[in-house]
């Protein structure tokens, strides 16, 4: 008989595969579609409005964004947001790393610390903002982006950072540390030459969370940034009074910054993982 063999049952995709593929495609389109729309619309010319169709093609609104006074202090807030995000990232990485090390074994009171952290993560941002504002008022301190807003943002980024650290640490084999000690490394050498390099991809992931969460943080920053705005707060005021595509242009610019950061982080993680990947096939 030369009839083709019946395809094995396992190779046939069930109908749910196609239904779920459709759902997935729809989800991804809904995720990225709206963003793509405003990127497109931000490149309109002078006649442009907030909706399609596109009117012309230019970078007018980008120029407008950084030159017009009526759109607010975009450049200044952009500057502050980047500085703040870098500051938050550095602190988040260092503190999350240490906390992650502590949580590798149980210690007296660890549950309290854990739930405080979860509380800090899920607390309503505005309520925290009010509390921090009142606290500063009580101590006669002037709220500013690099004190109260920094703390408010850390109360969000640190729990996230520690949670990511948990995931990373759970894949860290204690024997690496023990082996290093056995081979004569001091505690500091173990940390510097073994623990940090092995955990580096995870540490980069923590940095990614720290930077992007800070850079886009709004609810906790609104009440705590003092007299000088960060970029998301600036965008928020713009949504209330700006009805030109310069709003979209700002969206495009901030998203480009985000994408650069995401790309750098994910790219370097992928590089490191690829280097360490198992090449079982080669032997």
């Amino acid at each position: 008989m030369s009839a083709p063999a019946v395809r094995p049952l396992l190779d046939r995709r069930p109908w749910t595969f196609y239904a779920l593929t459709a759902l997935f495609v729809f989800y991804v389109l809904a995720l990225y579609g709206p963003m793509l729309c405003i990127y497109l619309l931000s490149f309109q010319d002078l006649r442009g409005g907030l909706v399609f169709p596109m009117k012309g093609l230019s970078v007018h609104w980008f120029v407008d964004l950084f030159t017009q006074v009526r759109t607010g202090d975009v450049k200044g807030s952009f500057d502050r947001s980047i500085k703040l995000a870098v500051l938050v990232t550095v602190i988040t990485v260092a503190v999350s790393f240490l906390a992650g090390m502590a949580f590798r074994r149980r210690f007296r009171g660890d549950t309290v610390v854990f739930y405080l952290m979860i509380g800090s993560l899920v607390a309503p941002g505005l309520v925290l903002g009010i509390g921090i504002g009142l606290l500063f008022q009580f101590f006669h301190l002037e709220p500013s982006w690099f004190t109260s807003a920094l703390g408010a943002q850390l109360s969000l980024t640190l729990p996230f950072g520690v949670l990511v650290m948990f995931a990373v640490m759970s894949r860290f084999d204690r024997r690496w540390e023990e082996a290093a000690r056995d081979l004569g490394a001091s505690s500091w050498q173990i940390t510097r030459m073994v623990v940090i390099p092995i955990l580096l991809p995870g540490i980069v992931a923590v940095a990614l969370f720290g930077f992007t969460l800070s850079y886009d943080e709004f609810a906790r920053t609104l009440q705590t940034s003092g007299s000088l705005n960060t970029l998301p707060v600036e965008i928020w005021t713009m949504t209330l009074n700006v009805t030109s595509p310069s709003l979209y242009a700002l969206g495009t610019v901030t998203t480009i910054v985000s994408f650069i950061i995401i790309g750098l982080c994910l790219g370097s993680i992928a590089q490191m993982q690829k280097r360490r990947a198992l090449h079982k096939a080669s032997h």
Binding site: T212, F218, T239, G251
Partner: peptide
């Protein structure tokens, strides 16, 4: 998208 601005995603 989680790592991008929520405000922008809303405006969009």
């Amino acid at each position: 998208p989680f790592w991008t601005s929520n405000i922008i995603r809303m405006i969009s």
